[in-house]
């Protein structure tokens, strides 16, 4: 079950695709959210996905970690490979989800202590020893640029932190799963610009270790962060290519250029 070579592959030396999606369609009842999307994400790159609302971006992310199982009425067709393995062949869907960190548009500080928020995923994975958890909690909070602000109050409720702190807490929680793939869904819409820039810096650091898929409404953010970008419109992937070429106006599709120049959306 090896995935076919990446469509954007230019030469054989390119690393194998981390994520490969082939003919992916998603329906909710009779409503089609995504139709026939084929794309791949390379190891340790940031793929930016932008486009207007109802483009199927969030549904795409939900399909990656098989959240369709927990979403009534959501039907997924097509194939998704992660590390060359069809995700429907994972017998343990919970293990699959632990390998994919997810960050939501609205910060979700679980009503547990800050410590427990970050220790939750390791505990679910079976890590019980206090020392081990301490190390994970500190390193994840540090990587999420939150440690200095919360290290003296690790027992306050995560839901009581400010919005920006909660969003970084969400990122720390995602990192605590030690994920190979991090997906972020419009993480900045409820966060102030300063925090947004801090999180963007975090993502630039993380890019060295893990693969990131970044769904964003801000085309400028995609331009700042992404190695490659995909443009989703009305449930179709209109275009995918190098960030530079897309933003320099060398788009293959007119609609992408129109969207980027503000002619619609």
């Amino acid at each position: 079950m090896a995935p076919p070579p990446s469509r954007t592959g230019k030469n054989l030396a390119e690393p194998p695709a981390k994520v490969h999606v082939r003919n992916l369609s998603i329906r909710y009842g009779s409503h089609t959210a995504l139709s026939d999307v084929t794309l791949s994400v390379a190891e340790r790159e940031i793929l930016g996905i932008f486009g207007p609302a109802n483009g199927g971006k969030t549904s795409f992310l939900k399909a990656l970690n098989r959240m369709d199982m927990f979403t009534p009425g959501m039907r997924v067709r097509g194939e998704i490979f992660i590390n060359g393995r069809d995700i429907r062949r994972w017998r343990n869907v919970y293990a699959l989800r632990r390998r994919i960190g997810v960050v939501f548009p609205l910060p979700v500080g679980l009503p547990l202590s800050v410590y427990d928020n970050v220790a939750l995923a390791p505990r679910l994975a079976g890590i019980q020893k206090k020392q081990d958890l301490d190390v994970i909690v500190e390193s994840c909070l540090t990587r999420a640029a939150l440690w200095d602000e919360v290290k003296d109050r690790l027992d306050t409720l995560g839901s009581l932190l400010s919005g920006g702190q909660q969003q970084r807490l969400t990122i720390a929680r995602a990192l605590s799963q030690n994920p190979e793939l991090l997906v972020l869904d419009e993480f900045s819409i409820a966060v102030d610009p300063v925090t947004t820039m801090r999180i963007e810096d975090i993502l630039k650091e993380l890019r060295r270790e893990i693969t990131i898929i970044l769904v964003t409404n801000l085309t400028a953010q995609a331009r700042r962060l992404a190695d490659r970008c995909a443009f989703f419109l009305s449930g179709r992937c209109i275009e995918i290519g190098e960030t530079e070429s897309i933003f320099s106006g060398a788009t293959k599709d007119e609609r992408t250029r129109d969207y980027l120049t503000g002619r619609f959306g």
């Binding site: 679980l110 929680r173 799963q177």
Partner: peptide
């Protein structure tokens, strides 16, 4: 629901 989704995404069972 967001609390539940956050947990599910971390690989927690229902």
């Amino acid at each position: 629901l967001a609390f539940r989704e956050a947990c599910w995404n971390m690989g927690a069972t229902r």
